[in-house]
Amino acid sequence: MRNRRDTFKWAFLFVVLTVLSLDYWWWGAATRLSLFGLPTWIYYFVALQFVLAAGVFFFSRHYWVDEADDAGVDRDGGDKAP
């Protein structure tokens, strides 16, 4: 079952990833070229996105799964016919 600690853990992960996308430490720095002649910071973002995808994968396995039963509960406590 989900609990407050799980919620905090996942929220923390995705907030950290979002903050890491504000990569101001690269700004104004000398550019170095890496594989295929692309700037090094390009690979930083590629890696960040793969970490994001992995995060979403584990999130969907461990958190999203448990919430299935209560996520669609009617705001007003009832159900309505289509």
Partner: peptide, 25 residues
């Protein structure tokens, strides 16, 4: 790339609940 990639989170925060409610109502 990253700005659009982050939209994946909306699949849960918006998409999942919209999907459930859509099927129910």
């Amino acid at each position: 790339a990253f700005g659009t990639g982050l939209v994946a989170l909306a699949f849960y925060f918006i998409g999942f609940k919209a999907w459930r409610l859509g099927r129910m109502r």
